Amino acid sequence: MKSDHNPVLEAALKIKLLLVDDEPEFLETLEKHLRRRKINTSVAEGCKVALDILEEQAIDVIVMDVSMPEIDGLQCLKKVKEKWPLIEVVILTGHASVKSGIEGMQGGAFDYCIKPIETQELVEKIELAGQKALINKQKADAES
């Protein structure tokens, strides 16, 4: 007897997401939209706070702005990928600059989006990144 058990779908619903941006209003608004869709969301104002959170919590997916003071999103992506290579990162760029999105992809980002972005489009990218993060973990577990 076959069951409807789909571990990838279930994992997508259990994604632990971290939003990283230097605009508190944007973070608050996006966090509310994502929580309404049952996505477990944490927020960080900037890369330094994000790195502290990553030391404390298991995170599957990060949605990160490129343009931030002190440590920009591309530098932060590099730090994340060096220390937590299984985390998938979606880069947000508000500059209508495809260049920084492509640089992010070359630096290991899962995908990029141009702000402003529709919540549904972002949720779809988060779910795909979450599925990839699950596959990354399963491969790592199988290899260990």
Rank of each mutant, 00 (worst) to 15 (best):
A11I: 05
L18D: 03
G104R: 12
L74D: 02
D22Y: 04
I87H: 11
A12G: 09
L9S: 14
E23N: 13
K32R: 13
L27A: 09
E103R: 03
I59K: 01
I102N: 02
L9N: 07
A109T: 12
M1A: 12
K99S: 09
V98T: 13
V49M: 15
V43A: 07
S144P: 03
Q131W: 15
G46M: 11
A44G: 03
E31I: 05
V66P: 08
V89W: 06
I117G: 00
E143I: 15
E10W: 10
E55D: 15
L51P: 05
L54N: 00
G94R: 00
E25F: 08
D65Q: 08
N40E: 11
K132S: 05
A129L: 06
P69F: 13
K83A: 07
V20A: 00
F26M: 06
Q75Y: 04
L30N: 09
L54V: 05
A133N: 02
V123N: 15
A58F: 14
V61L: 02
K48Q: 12
N40I: 00
N6S: 08
M105G: 03
A50C: 06
K38V: 03
A140H: 12
R35W: 04
G94V: 04
A133F: 12
L13W: 13
L77S: 14
D52A: 13
T119M: 02
I53F: 08
K38A: 14
R36G: 10
I59C: 05
D21C: 08
E127H: 13
R36D: 14
E88N: 11
I59N: 01
E45M: 09
V90E: 02
V8L: 15
V20N: 03
M105C: 10
R36M: 10
G107N: 15
P24H: 05
Q131A: 10
I15Q: 00
D4H: 09
L34W: 12
I39T: 07
M1W: 14
E56L: 13
G94S: 05
M1I: 09
G107R: 15
E70K: 13
V66W: 07
K137C: 01
K125L: 13
S97E: 15
I15F: 09
E127T: 11
C76A: 10
I102A: 14
K81P: 04
K79Q: 09
D52K: 13
K115C: 05
F26R: 01
V49A: 10
V80Y: 11
L74R: 00
I62E: 01
E118S: 07
V61T: 00
D21L: 06
A109I: 08
D21K: 05
I126M: 05
I117S: 06
E103S: 11
D111K: 07
E10G: 09
K132V: 13
K32Y: 10
E45L: 14
I39S: 00
V89Y: 04
V20P: 00
